[in-house]
Design a protein around this nucleic acid. Structure first.
Length: 291
DNA sequence: AGCCAGGCCCTCC
DNA sequence: GGAGGGCCTGGC
């Protein structure tokens, strides 16, 4: 089925910019796994074509709408950055890139994996976790796996998980899975909490510091003011925004600085800066290799 | 070979 | 409270 969406919609930047790690392009479609369903998407004119299994497209549509946050008015967010030429430049290049609202559990594990890593490796890690521990979903010829539940990973045992080349993150994931599976923290309920309270709750988890917690808040808990300070953003801020004195601030202090600077949609400024900076860097690398 | 990668944790001051 | 080093693994 084809659904109407807000315009414009930048599918490529939204799905492959490192917010989520289960989307891949093939044959003009983007294929992913969303809340236990294999979903294929492609643009058709101004609309978005959806195929899904095992649930049919009619029942998946509202889930996809929430996942993409189609209720969010991007133009209002863009307008809030009207005074910032740097952000405006990135918006021009990736207009229609949206911030996803993923399953918080999957998002949490994904960003625990992200520490000291890169998008390619994180993608492989998440794939291995799903294939090894996730419930199979039949999808035509090939078998695709859902993301494992907290209980699945809590019961997995570090010996089996230890083979997945997650490194020191194995223990973090295992311990965090136990916390969630035992009901000591209800991730979904954090959507109703304030940004600050939810941040504090997440930072208690093994392998979750300020950066990872802010990724989870931004990409799955509907907290647009969340601002993950990773090395890319750190560089971008140091180069383009911070004074010499401010450059020496700690990561959480830089986060506070940025949240004050960019306001209640700081997370969108973050995502556009991150994507822009990362693609620019890759482009430079490519050119230097050629020369 | 050696450094860095979308950090976190522990130690020590 | 914050600076510094270690850490699995992989890529260059």
């Amino acid at each position: 089925m084809i659904i109407e969406t807000p315009q414009p919609l930048d599918l490529e930047s939204t799905l492959l910019s490192g917010q989520a790690f289960r989307w891949q392009r093939s044959d003009g479609w983007y294929r992913g796994v969303v809340f236990g369903n294999v979903v294929k998407l492609r643009k058709r004119g101004d609309g978005l074509e959806i195929l899904s299994t095992p649930d049919d497209e009619q029942s998946i549509e509202p889930i996809i709408r929430d996942y993409f946050g189609f209720k969010t008015d991007l133009q209002e967010i863009y307008n809030s950055f009207s005074c910032d030429t740097r952000i405006q430049g990135a918006i021009t290049r990736y207009r229609g890139m949206r911030i996803l609202q993923q399953d918080p559990w999957e998002c949490l594990v994904s960003f625990i994996c992200s520490s000291n890593s890169n998008i390619g490796r994180i993608t492989r890690n998440i794939h291995d976790i799903c294939v090894t521990f996730g419930r199979p979903i039949s999808s035509g010829a090939d078998t695709i796996h859902a993301f494992p539940t907290p209980r699945d990973l809590a019961d997995a045992g570090e010996d089996l998980m230890g083979r997945l080349r997650l490194g020191y993150r194995t223990r973090y994931i295992s311990d965090t899975a136990r916390v969630i599976a035992d009901g000591r923290l209800d991730l979904i309920s954090l959507r109703e909490e304030s940004y600050t309270d939810a941040l504090e709750a997440l930072i208690g988890l093994p392998g979750v510091g300020d950066k990872v917690a802010n990724c989870v808040l931004l990409f799955s808990l509907n907290k647009p003011e969340a601002f993950p300070v990773d090395v890319w953003i750190h560089r971008a801020l140091r180069e383009w925004y911070l004074s010499d004195e401010e450059k020496n601030l700690s990561r959480p202090k830089i986060r506070l600085w940025a949240q004050k600077r960019f306001g209640r949609f700081a997370g969108y400024a973050n995502q556009y800066l991150f994507h822009d900076r990362r693609l620019e860097d890759r482009s430079n690398q490519h050119h230097s290799n050629v020369g």
